[in-house]
Amino acid sequence: MSEQGMPVGETAARLGLTVRTLHHWDEIGLARPAARSSAGYRLYTDEDLERLRRIVVYRELGLDLDAIRAVIDEPGGDVAAQLRVQRTHVSQRIAQLQIVDDDLERMIAAQERGILLSEDEQHETFGPGWDTSWPAEARDAYGGSPQWQQYAERSASRSVDDWAEVTRAVSAVDAELADAVASGVEPGDALADALVERHRTVFSQYFPLTRQMQVHLGRMYAADPRFAAHYDAIRPGLAMWLRDAIEASARAHGIDPDTARWE
């Protein structure tokens, strides 16, 4: 420091501030340097530095500049009251951040596990035939896909009751599909097309399902022994019927099932 004071650049560096900040505080009258060099540059005296240190302390506590001005410049001001107000704001922010932290924890768990239910809750919600290893298998197979991410994002906010509602919707459409097979509805009929659309709507509760993607699912239902067994247990021949109904509906919408892409 010279005999007159410290230049603005050195002052900023000492206090961990920017020159721009010091210029701003000078312009609004919060911290004006007491001296100027012969060339007109700002110079900060010891008293100026002490004021700046106090400003920095209160700014780090979260007070805005108007509150800091009141604390520093109003003789007899109730500093404790100002700090209590700030502490209330901080407490509210902490509570908000705790909610965000909890949400992040659930989102991370959902991305890693798929379903945030205990094994007992899964059996109770999805039925005795549910295998609790299936979510992990799905994560291993599809964890890098956008659809898994969408599925996990929805799963993160779902409760046991939410999953129970999804299960009821799926069971209801399965029953409608089985009734259609029992009634002799042919793939491509208007009722079959309506049921295919209903299946797509219900399945979209897991992730958005396009008609092209539905074609791939239909073929998997018929080809994968576990899916085929599930549908055929509801109604013999249902897996093949659903595949054929999905493909007939796709053709009606201008989609060639043989060239349909997962998109």
Rank of each mutant, 00 (worst) to 15 (best):
T45N: 08
V100A: 12
G5H: 00
G5D: 00
R84A: 13
A95I: 05
L61D: 07
L65P: 06
V85D: 12
A80W: 13
R69E: 12
E27K: 09
R59W: 10
G40L: 04
A109I: 05
D48T: 05
G9P: 13
L30Y: 12
Y44H: 06
A34K: 12
Q111F: 07
V85G: 14
I68M: 10
Y44L: 08
I72R: 09
T21W: 02
V90A: 07
L104W: 03
L104D: 01
G62E: 07
L30A: 06
A95D: 08
Q98D: 14
R53M: 13
V19A: 07
D26C: 05
V56A: 09
R14H: 13
G62L: 14
D78A: 04
R42Y: 04
L43T: 08
L97C: 09
I28Q: 11
D103L: 15
E105T: 12
L97P: 05
A80R: 15
R51D: 09
V56W: 00
V8P: 05
R59Y: 10
H89Q: 11
I72Y: 03
G40Y: 03
Y44N: 02
H24M: 14
L97V: 08
T11D: 04
W25V: 00
V85T: 15
L43K: 11
L63W: 07
T21G: 01
D102R: 12
L83T: 12
V71L: 12
R106K: 15
A13G: 04
I108K: 15
H89L: 14
W25R: 01
L52E: 03
L49V: 04
E60Y: 11
Q98Y: 08
H24N: 12
V85P: 01
L15P: 00
T21D: 02
M6R: 03
S38M: 14
A12T: 06
D78I: 10
H89T: 11
Y44S: 07
D26Q: 11
A12G: 06
G16W: 05
G77F: 12
R93K: 05
A70P: 10
T18D: 07
L65E: 10
I55Y: 03
A31M: 07
T18I: 09
R51A: 05
G76M: 08
A12S: 06
D78H: 06
